[in-house]
């Protein structure tokens, strides 16, 4: 039992990092526009396929590929926001929520046109991943996993500094706190929301690349990612970015520990997480850390 522990912890860390990236985008959008973006998981799916297009099919080096994914995804986020969510900004949350389901399904259809519906993989025939063995062979870690962990840590740190110290970041926090007051003080609401969508979509796209690096690419891969990210957001307390990260770690660790240490087959992993989510929404609709969202959640 103990000898598989390092491996489980490493997998948990990887999963947590991925969920955190998606959850932050979700939390940013929820914090300001007050609707759940169901397309967030599909943004990740698009990111995974873009990387496939640029690097595996296009032959670009991976770091240019990542940069391209970030740029294209950010643009996509802005365009989607302008076309679909901006016209309904003053509507009740029900409407942008249903729209986001439509947007997600549309993105799936577009990706099938471009890449076909079959399951794909980043691993090409004959290529061998560099594997490091640690703790007396109980832990194997691939080169790409380490790279991606650094990329995630860098992105999270960058986001923190951006929100905390940059002028735009301050504007984002101001808009999240009180849109009307921020507008009076001369913050451009449209620009700020556009930036939030750009950041949120780009983070999700990177997460998509990470998950596709570990598993395979499929058109519906975004769904479970989106629901888990939402679970992370609720766990950490809606609207709190550090909370979303903590929530992502709780989900990442619990799903891997449940599958690693119990006889439950891994194909039930997602079903278990969603079952826990439903129970958790019932018991703690305000998350584990905040009471602020209580009125938010209860009708």
């Amino acid at each position: 039992m103990l000898e598989i522990l390092p491996q489980i912890i490493w997998f948990s860390l990887l999963a947590s990092a991925i969920y955190a990236l998606v959850a932050i985008g979700l939390s940013l959008i929820f914090g300001i526009l007050e609707f759940i973006n169901f397309a967030q998981g599909d943004f990740a799916m698009v990111g995974a396929y873009l990387f496939f297009g640029f690097v595996i099919e296009g032959g670009l080096p991976w770091w240019i590929g990542i940069a391209m994914v970030v740029i294209v995804a950010a643009l996509m986020g802005v365009v989607i926001e302008r076309i679909t969510f901006k016209p309904v900004r003053k509507s009740p949350p029900f409407i942008p929520l249903v729209i986001s389901i439509g947007v997600g399904a549309l993105l799936q259809a577009i990706m099938i046109f471009k890449f076909g519906g079959s399951v794909k993989s980043y691993r090409t025939e004959g290529s061998k991943a560099e594997v490091y063995k640690l703790f007396g062979d109980t832990l194997s870690v691939t080169q790409s996993q380490i790279t991606l962990m650094f990329v995630t840590a860098g992105l999270l740190l960058g986001l923190y500094l951006f929100l905390k110290y940059s002028k735009t970041g301050t504007a984002i926090r101001a808009v999240a706190d009180n849109q009307d007051v921020a507008a009076i003080l001369g913050v451009s609401i449209n620009k700020t929301i556009g930036i939030i969508f750009a950041v949120g979509t780009a983070l999700a796209a990177v997460a998509g690349v990470m998950i596709a690096n570990e598993q395979n690419l499929s058109i519906t891969m975004g769904l479970s990612l989106g629901v888990k990210a939402f679970a992370a957001v609720v766990l950490g307390g809606v609207g709190s970015l550090p909370g979303a990260i903590v929530g992502a770690f709780i989900i990442g660790f619990s799903e891997n520990f449940i599958v690693g240490l119990t006889p439950i087959p891994s194909s039930y992993k997602d079903a278990i997480v969603f079952g826990l989510l439903i129970i958790m929404l019932f018991l703690y609709p305000n998350g584990l850390f905040g009471a602020k969202a209580e009125e938010e959640a209860r009708a």
């Binding site: 609707f35 949350p93 629901v227 969603f274 989510l277 439903i278 929404l281 938010e296």
Partner: peptide, 21 residues
């Protein structure tokens, strides 16, 4: 039973989870 006391978008996500399960 567990979801009907929540607000609509929370029910949305919980019920999506149900479909997935």
């Amino acid at each position: 039973l567990p979801t009907l006391k929540l607000r609509s978008h929370y029910i949305g996500i919980a019920s999506l989870g149900f479909t997935y399960i």
